[in-house]
């Protein structure tokens, strides 16, 4: 464990909790893509199946359980409890265009052709694009609530910190996982445009709105 991975994990945790609290406190999931949240729940479920087969550390297990629990709670709030506030008309990204290619790629490019390993690979690839429905929704409505942008910022920060973590691990531990690294780079690139808007607008106290 290095400082970049730890702060990356905590940043990820912050993102998840910010979103859950925002929805819970405002009793509204307006502006949030339910599809992205379902994809993230699928990501955590397929990746953390190793909770049942191997124990790594108390930290590792605790974080996995919290991530899974929070992601399902978020999905529950969006599609069940606060369904009336869900903005489905603007959440029109076709997720099958993500799931099908990502599933195919996981079968073709993986470390080991075993069910658990393929599901893990699937989750890595899927995570790299799971935010697209949310970004698509923002581009469609042309704006995002500031709290939603904080959520996205922490999610992107987590990816950037993980990239530094992998450089660190490569130099000091000789460890690298090509699948995770390539997917992580793709995922981080997807946030770049958003980061730019976040720094130039949100941090200067303006609302994030896109030109028409």
């Amino acid at each position: 464990m290095n400082i970049f991975r730890l702060t990356g994990d905590l940043s990820h945790l912050a993102a998840i909790i910010i979103l859950l609290l925002k929805i819970w406190k405002s009793r509204s999931c307006a502006g949030i893509s339910g599809k992205s949240q379902v994809l993230f729940a699928l990501v955590f479920t397929t990746r953390y199946l190793d909770l049942l087969t191997s124990f790594i550390s108390l930290y590792n297990t605790t974080m996995k359980v919290i991530y899974i629990g929070c992601s399902y709670a978020t999905v529950y709030l969006i599609y069940m409890k606060l369904k009336a506030t869900y903005d489905g008309n603007h959440d029109t990204f076709r997720v099958e265009f993500l799931i099908v290619p990502v599933g195919g790629l996981a079968f073709l490019v993986n470390h080991d052709f075993s069910p658990l390993e393929i599901l893990w690979t699937f989750s890595i690839y899927l995570e790299s694009v799971a935010i697209l429905p949310q970004l698509f929704m923002i581009s469609k409505t042309g704006e995002a609530e500031t709290i939603t942008t904080h959520y996205l910022f922490f999610l992107g920060l987590y990816r950037a910190l993980y990239l530094i973590n992998w450089i660190w691990r490569f130099y000091f531990e000789g460890f690298f996982d090509m699948i995770a690294i390539v997917a992580g780079v793709v995922q981080t690139i997807l946030y770049c445009d958003f980061f730019y808007l976040y720094v130039t607008k949100v941090l200067k106290g303006k609302k994030l709105s896109l030109p028409a």
């Binding site: 991975r5 994990d9 990820h12 190793d50 191997s54 790594i56 550390s57 590792n60 974080m63 996995k64 991530y67 470390h111 080991d112 390993e117 893990w120 993980y162 973590n165 460890f175 996982d177 995770a180």
Partner: peptide, 10 residues
């Protein structure tokens, strides 16, 4: 033979 990397990351 493949060496499956340790899944210690989240």
């Amino acid at each position: 033979c493949h060496r499956t990397p340790a899944k210690d990351e989240l």
